[in-house]
Amino acid sequence: MDPASEKSSHPEAAEIRSFGRRRGRKLSARQERLLTELLPRVAIDPSGPAPTDITALFPPGTSAFWLEIGFGGAEHLIWQAEANPNVGLIGCEPFEEGLVKALTAVDDKGLGNIRLLGDDVRPLLRWLPEASLDRAFILFPDPWPKKRHRKRRLFSPDLLRLLARVMKPGAELRFASDIGDYAGTALYAVQQTPFFRWTADRPADWRQRPADWPGTRYEVKAGREGRRCYFLRFIRV
């Protein structure tokens, strides 16, 4: 089944917002400068003409393309960019403070393989070329723990259909949560579409992070508060 031919159950204009606030505390002068001067040089604009080839978004020689949805404090995004200089990483984060943290690292470390979007990821997934991503990450998304808010959870069959369109066969989708109910939501969502396969063969496969999957502040907080973390990996079939 071709995901591009499947219609989302929610029209784009009526999609439920999956994230909370966009702004927090007042930014410093340097942070404001990064937003006004550096962000335009590394930003992706899904409202513009769509690229026919994802390589046009990155420096020559970039050999693979990864997407992190909701990168939070950007620890994982920056670690992956430094560890994989030949990989082009797109980071999507609506919260301004997270965006500024990524920009600060890009500026301080001179990272040329990061592109950023400070908005909802779904327009980006409709804009990117088909079968262009080799990996995607959704790590510790907003859990929306109240029952009446669970419809806002980002990981859903609709999102998986959008991801399936832009991920190559064999590409890997990584998901992490410290909320057991959300891990169950993710597994159920994967079962609702034919596009992804869960890779776990034993409990360690979802209880332990692989060596190339660095920890984040959310994982540290979960451990401090006594919550187990779940690390799920899915393959685009």
Rank of each mutant, 00 (worst) to 15 (best):
V220K: 10
W144T: 13
P169C: 01
I44W: 06
H10A: 14
R17Y: 04
L99V: 15
K7C: 04
L124Y: 09
C92T: 01
T185N: 11
D45C: 05
W66H: 05
P141N: 05
L159K: 05
E68W: 03
D158A: 15
E37P: 10
Y218E: 02
P94I: 11
L57V: 14
D181A: 10
L117P: 04
L154Y: 11
G215Q: 08
A29D: 08
G98E: 05
A222T: 07
Y182D: 00
G24D: 07
P51N: 11
S5N: 14
A176E: 09
D45K: 05
E219D: 04
P85H: 09
L27Q: 10
L38Q: 01
T36Q: 04
L160Q: 01
K109L: 07
P157I: 11
Q31D: 15
R152L: 04
R150S: 00
R152W: 02
F58I: 10
P60I: 08
L117R: 09
V42T: 15
L111S: 13
T193C: 04
R217G: 07
L124W: 08
R227S: 13
P59Q: 01
S9D: 08
G88W: 01
A186L: 01
K26N: 06
S28C: 13
R152T: 08
R152Y: 06
P169Q: 08
G61K: 09
L139F: 00
P94K: 03
M1N: 11
D201S: 12
L125T: 02
D178C: 13
R233E: 04
A204H: 04
R115H: 08
P46H: 09
K109E: 09
S28E: 12
F137V: 00
A171C: 03
A164Q: 03
L103F: 02
I138V: 14
A14I: 13
R150W: 03
H149M: 06
A14C: 13
R228D: 15
H149C: 07
Y230F: 14
H10Y: 11
T199M: 09
D201K: 03
N113R: 11
L57W: 01
P46C: 15
K26M: 03
S8H: 13
V121G: 03
T199R: 10
E68Q: 02
Y188I: 15
A176L: 04
A164Y: 05
R135D: 05
S9P: 08
R227F: 10
F196N: 08
Y182L: 01
I54W: 06
L133T: 15
L159N: 00
A50D: 14
A176G: 10
Y230S: 14
D212M: 12
A164V: 08
P194F: 00
E96L: 01
I54L: 00
E15P: 09
D45I: 12
L89F: 04
R150F: 02
A189F: 05
Y230M: 09
M1A: 05
P94R: 08
